[in-house]
Write a protein that binds this DNA or RNA. Structure first.
Lengths: 246, 246
DNA sequence: ATGGTGCATTAACCTATGTTAGTGCAGATT
DNA sequence: AATCTGCACTAACATAGGTTAATGCACCAT
């Protein structure tokens, strides 16, 4: 089984690990995932309030962190392959939001007992796991900034730019764009606006020749303009150039 | 020196530790802070981009995480006594935002070498530190939700309710409200609006008999209405009733 | 006393966005 | 073929909140 799972943990390394790892660390990571599972689109992988004893690594597809409130759905964060979607639940135990698949997904599970073992015996790996959740927090902060700062078109531009960059980290972006199954409603839920207004914004992006979002795909037409509109500066993603250990 | 600093680390326990600790853990925490420093109001304790080798615990006063963008200031998060304001920099190293005092503050410092020691030898404490940063992330998420969901008056109500609750965790709230030195401009920077609109909102809160914010103090007049307006549910703060270890 | 400075406050006007109420179209189901 | 369903799209109108421009008021320094 390990041999099948190797590429998955390798992807975790790509997306979230900015450290160099020794062979033993590498092996530990490879053996972290004990089980995988497939879900169809719009499946609630985990519900708010669930008490969990394992953490979930997204291997294929997209997953959203969702909260429903007053009949409205809010997407707090989006995840790309290689992300742990609920690593924070290892220390918090109870989930404060739901985890929902967007499009079909493949996930892997790591029992918390394994994580505890890592925490007790492999401080370097522990720090890497910690780092992964800190990256989530940094993305949250960036999103707070954008929500306070930008109107809907800028938010959408930022969202696209960020996902593009994050997919690129895991080798899943191509120069012209990326596959992205979110509906306009879900984009609206992500940007804190309505589907109707999101439709205006999507059209505006398209008509201004910046990007086209349709049929489950984002096509970037003018990268510079996209980055400008979204005020996107990837520094907060602490990418390859910014190792914080080593 | 330890005897003077004891209450400080004790406050950290109050605000952020939801675990029970053994004597040795307790002692380690007490000795974590090696140095303290006082700053006047509006002092930039740390600048965005700084590479840090120690982490900062807020002991007295308020501190904001700030980003300046396009001539505008954004407050990403607020901290109350007992909070580490840059514990995330232990793993991220480079700060993605500035740390600014709001009113006079007293801070304590913990060298990263001490944190590394804890990570290597005291997994339980390591987990507690991790938990503390996860709490920040949970607060970020809640704020994202409120930014996407509420208009300015609801955001302000939520902000007040949250700070009141967090101050209560460290024994610094009183039943009628709390001391709070933010100007309307800073409240606006926190809520993602303008000072002018914040003024309308503050007045509305006052006139509707919910809360009064003036002369560096928040007075809560109608707790239920405040909680209702801000949609405040303290569950995401993982308070005393919600231990996730033990 | 006088003027400066920071903060709170108000007014008038404009734009982004929400709300309500629809239309149209493609793929799936029967 | 007919219908259903989900999604994209549009229009008309209402409102929250941004922008610009001032005023007032306390505290501080000279």
């Amino acid at each position: 089984m390990t041999s099948t799972l190797y590429p998955l943990s390798h992807r975790f390394l790509l997306g979230r690990a900015r450290h160099r790892l020794d062979d033993e660390d590498q092996r530990t990571i490879e053996e972290m995932i004990t089980d995988v599972e497939r879900f169809t689109s719009a499946h609630s992988v985990l519900e708010r309030g669930d008490v969990v004893s394992r953490s979930t690594l997204l291997i294929e597809g997209f997953i959203a962190r969702v909260i429903k409130q007053d009949g409205r759905r809010h997407i707090l964060a989006l995840h790309v392959p290689g992300d742990f979607v609920d690593l924070h639940a290892f220390a918090l135990k109870r989930l404060d939001h739901s985890i929902v698949s967007i499009g079909p997904v493949l996930v892997g599970y790591t029992p918390h007992t394994k994580l505890e073992e890592i925490l007790e015996t492999r401080p370097r790996l522990a720090r890497m796991l910690w780092f992964s959740t800190l990256l989530d927090a940094a993305m949250h902060r960036e999103w707070i900034l954008k929500l306070e700062h930008l109107s809907a078109d800028g938010r959408l531009a930022h969202l696209i730019a960020e996902i593009w960059q994050r997919l690129d980290f895991v080798g899943m972006a191509d120069p012209s764009g990326f596959s992205f199954p979110l509906t306009q409603q879900e984009l609206a839920d992500s940007c804190g606006t309505t589907a109707i207004h999101m439709n205006r914004v999507v059209r505006k992006l398209r008509e201004s020749g910046i990007a086209d979002i349709s049929r489950g795909r984002v096509t970037i037409m003018d990268t510079d303009a996209l980055i400008e509109l979204g005020g996107f500066d990837p520094a907060y993603l602490y990418g390859k150039g910014d190792l914080m250990l080593d």
